[in-house]
Every structure is written in C-alpha cells, then in structure tokens.
Amino acid sequence: MKHRRKPKNEMKVTVTFSKANKQTTRRHHGEIPSAGVAAIRKKAGLSQSAFADSIGVSLGTVRNWEQGRRQPSGPAKVLLTLLARRPNLVAEI
C-alpha cells in the first residue's frame, strides 16, 4: 500500500511585477487555500471544463486541484493568485 502525503491546507505564492525599462519591481505575497481553486473558478462563472480551457490545463488537472488530490505549482500558482484577486481576468485573456 502506497503512502500518500496529505495535501497542504494552503499554497504560498509570490508574484513579482516589473515594468519595461524600469528598475523597480513589486512583489505580492498570497496564499491560496486548497479548496480555493473551486472558489476562484466559480467567481469567474465558469464550468470546470471552460475554466481548464481558459487557463490552458486539462479538465483532469482542475478536478484534481479541486478535490485536493494535487496542488497547483509554478506558473499555475501565480495564475491562480492573480485570478483570485481579479476573476474577470480569465475573460480578458
């Protein structure tokens, strides 16, 4: 029997913004609860399938995130952090 790690309760994310030709950057720290993916998707008003298509991941990936079997990592964390703050960003992309 395989031992599975328990999913973390939240993800910690750092997003860095910089403007072209500028030396300054802004960093934003955020945390996404593991159940937050479903809430982000619902705020955007999208089905799992439409949300997956809009952010460029498979439907299975979104389902795994929402059910806590997997946690988003890397660029997906950053994108979800942005979407948590601006749910309409999906429509703008």
Rank of each mutant, 00 (worst) to 15 (best):
K2R: 01
K2C: 00
H3M: 04
H3D: 05
R4H: 13
P7R: 08
P7S: 04
K8T: 14
K8H: 08
E10A: 10
E10I: 01
M11C: 07
K12Y: 04
V13I: 07
V13R: 00
T14A: 09
T14F: 07
T14E: 12
T14D: 04
T14S: 11
V15C: 03
T16P: 01
T16A: 02
F17Y: 10
N21K: 11
K22H: 08
K22R: 08
Q23F: 13
Q23R: 13
Q23L: 14
Q23N: 06
T24S: 06
T25F: 00
R26T: 01
R26A: 01
R27H: 01
H29F: 11
G30H: 11
E31N: 15
E31I: 15
I32G: 08
S34T: 15
A35T: 12
G36R: 12
G36C: 14
G36I: 12
G36Y: 12
I40K: 13
R41D: 13
K42D: 06
K43L: 05
A44M: 01
A44V: 01
G45W: 08
G45K: 06
L46Y: 09
S47E: 04
S47T: 11
Q48Y: 01
Q48R: 13
S49C: 10
A50C: 06
A50N: 07
A50F: 01
F51T: 05
A52G: 11
V57D: 05
V57G: 07
S58K: 14
S58Y: 05
T61D: 00
T61R: 03
V62S: 00
R63S: 04
N64R: 06
E66Y: 00
R69S: 04
R70V: 02
Q71R: 10
Q71T: 07
P72S: 03
P72H: 03
P72M: 03
S73A: 15
G74A: 12
A76L: 12
K77E: 13
K77R: 12
V78R: 11
L80S: 09
L80T: 13
T81G: 03
T81Y: 08
T81S: 14
L82F: 12
L82W: 13
A84W: 15
A84Y: 11
R85I: 04
P87C: 10
P87F: 13
P87D: 10
P87T: 13
L89F: 05
L89D: 01
V90C: 14
E92V: 15
